[in-house]
Nucleic acid binder design. Structure first.
Lengths: 162, 162
DNA sequence: ACTCTTTAGTTGAAGCAACAACCAATTAGG
DNA sequence: CCTAATTGGTTGTTGCTTCAACTAAAGAGT
């Protein structure tokens, strides 16, 4: 089959997207690590818990929301539990399952970390764009996720298309 | 200082960008790993070399283009050299420096891997967007990189703004 | 010439993440 | 019921990234 190579316009857009995808995680990690002693993954997991009902999620659900494998989440949860930021307890309804629940300490940590994180997001992303571009990014994100995450697992807590 | 929280519109765009940034590397890695036995980082490094004059770049230059630390690149280069895809040789002009040069085998590897990679990029990104959105993504990428990569190190081989 | 600093790169140890193997609890089939 | 298959999680290796220390060459100052 003949390859449909990228046109110059497509290639230009692609090169920039790759650069952003490569650089953004580092920028996020660096600020959170520096200011709050959390990796972006840890912050994200805690933030998901903080917005969940009863600040509690099943390990499997949290793994999907944070795009992690279950083994990875298990290791991370063990570290966070050792730091007192969450607790794991067996689920009453299904005794195979484990519920991860944010402690008061963990909640306090999220509250402490959030302002700096939001400021960082503004600096690197939101405030670098015009209002129109923010809306375009919203649409583009939906289009890309329809191919990358057709089941909407990562964006589960946020209704799509809004 | 009072935190300027994200508006709903901003938050929606941000959530989608985070999801894309989280998912895209995995999608890229999986296809290249499966079809060509290369990580995305390895492919990217080889591709940069393949477009450089004489298929040769200084280690430092290649590290900047691929957003890698020098130690990381050194380890990866050692592995790629062991596989016969590139060679490292001391630089004549500056004997501290090392030049990485793509071998014929490495060139063949890039030629073999490129079509599948491009098809994957089309499937996950380019073909999921309208022509207008591709152009918008180009602009948005420039705006984000002006904050993330002000010196344009990663996009060094491609002139900005085109 | 001789030191001191900076630059370029490599190496070795330590920390995460992925994969695989495993155990426990639930569900389905005969 | 009693077995088999599936689901939910945890626990050990393997490989790559990162961090810190080290070698070596180039340049700067005296």
């Amino acid at each position: 089959m003949d390859t449909r190579w990228l046109t110059p316009v497509e290639r230009a857009a692609w090169v920039r997207l790759v650069a952003v995808v490569e650089l953004l995680p580092g920028a996020l990690d660096a600020q959170l690590r520096e200011d709050s002693g959390l990796t972006h993954f840890e912050y994200f997991a805690l933030a998901m818990l903080s917005e969940a009902p009863d600040r509690t999620l099943r390990m499997t659900a949290l793994a999907q929301l944070s795009n992690a494998t279950l083994p990875r989440l298990s290791h991370v949860a063990k570290r966070l539990e050792a730091r007192g930021l969450l607790v794991r307890e067996p689920c009453a309804e299904d005794r195979r399952a484990t519920n991860a629940r944010l402690t008061d300490e963990g909640w306090a940590k999220v509250v402490e970390a959030a302002p700096g994180h939001v400021a960082n997001v503004r600096r690197h992303v939101v405030d670098a764009l015009t209002g129109d571009q923010v809306r375009q990014l919203h649409e583009i994100g939906d289009a890309l996720l329809s191919a990358l995450d057709p089941d909407g697992r990562m964006t589960g807590l946020y209704e799509p298309g809004t």
